[in-house]
Simulated scan of single mutants.
Amino acid sequence: MSTKALFITGASSGIGAATARLAVAKGWHVGLFARSKDKLEALADELGDKAVVLPGDVTKLEDIKSAIADFVAKTGGLDAAFANAGMGLSAAGTDAGDPEEWEQMVSVNILGVLWTAKAAMPHLKERAGHLLLTGSAAGRRHISGSVYGASKWFVHGYGGNLSEEMKEFGGRCTIIAPGMVDTPFFDEPKPDKLQPDDVARAAVYALESDPRCAVNEIFLMPTQ
């Protein structure tokens, strides 16, 4: 039984599901966390006994704590956690934006990252573990009125701060920052943009880098 265990939020589709598939192929056990139990179970059926279905809401700290505890009970420990869950907005900008939608997005994109880090940290300390955060090209530049982009600026800033904090116990934090990715995040397919597998390969590269090497950020952009 592999001792490597990776907990993934937003695991039911897109980047999260692609990372789970690649991690399992590399010998990791994966904890699949998302709201959609049916999608998680379908993915786990595909991945086999290295996958654990952990339904829950990323905006609820207790859901994440409970899921990680269940995962650790099955695997014996936690080597990495991927705070990947995120959402966008239907209306861009400040004047046209929907405050209720902002509140929901902040709960997912900011609090969801904080809750994942908070819940995982005690377990990661035991194994000099690794945190991955899904950032974005939108968190590295200014976009007119973008509240979504501002939420990703938080991820980039917090990820750098986590890197400093985790050095205290030999841990690492990596921000995976893609440009446009062809995922269900968008209503229309984007076949010429990055694919979830591209982002998954970046995530697993960071995880499997030598412990002496802290990969603080991987920034991916589509060539087209």
Rank of each mutant, 00 (worst) to 15 (best):
G171A: 13
C213Y: 12
A67S: 14
Y158F: 15
A17M: 08
A44F: 09
K37R: 15
L124V: 09
A177V: 10
D198Q: 07
M1Y: 06
D192G: 05
K167H: 12
Y158H: 11
L32W: 04
M1R: 12
P184C: 12
K50H: 14
G149T: 07
T174S: 06
G16W: 00
L32K: 04
P222I: 10
R127M: 04
K39T: 03
K50Y: 07
V106D: 02
S12K: 06
G27F: 08
S13F: 09
R172M: 07
H123I: 02
K39R: 15
L47H: 05
H29E: 04
A11P: 05
A69L: 11
A25R: 13
D38K: 13
A120S: 13
A25M: 07
H29V: 00
M121P: 00
T3D: 11
T19Q: 01
G157W: 12
N84S: 11
V155Y: 03
A42G: 10
Y148E: 06
L194P: 01
K65L: 06
P55N: 09
Q104H: 11
G27A: 09
L111Q: 11
V52N: 01
L54D: 02
G160Y: 01
L47D: 06
E126A: 15
G112A: 11
V215A: 03
K118P: 00
R21E: 12
Y158S: 03
E62D: 15
S146N: 04
Q224C: 06
W28M: 04
D198C: 04
A214D: 13
A23T: 08
R127P: 02
A91H: 14
G112P: 08
K26V: 07
F154H: 08
L78R: 02
D57E: 13
I175S: 10
K190T: 07
G171S: 13
S144W: 05
G48S: 11
G14N: 05
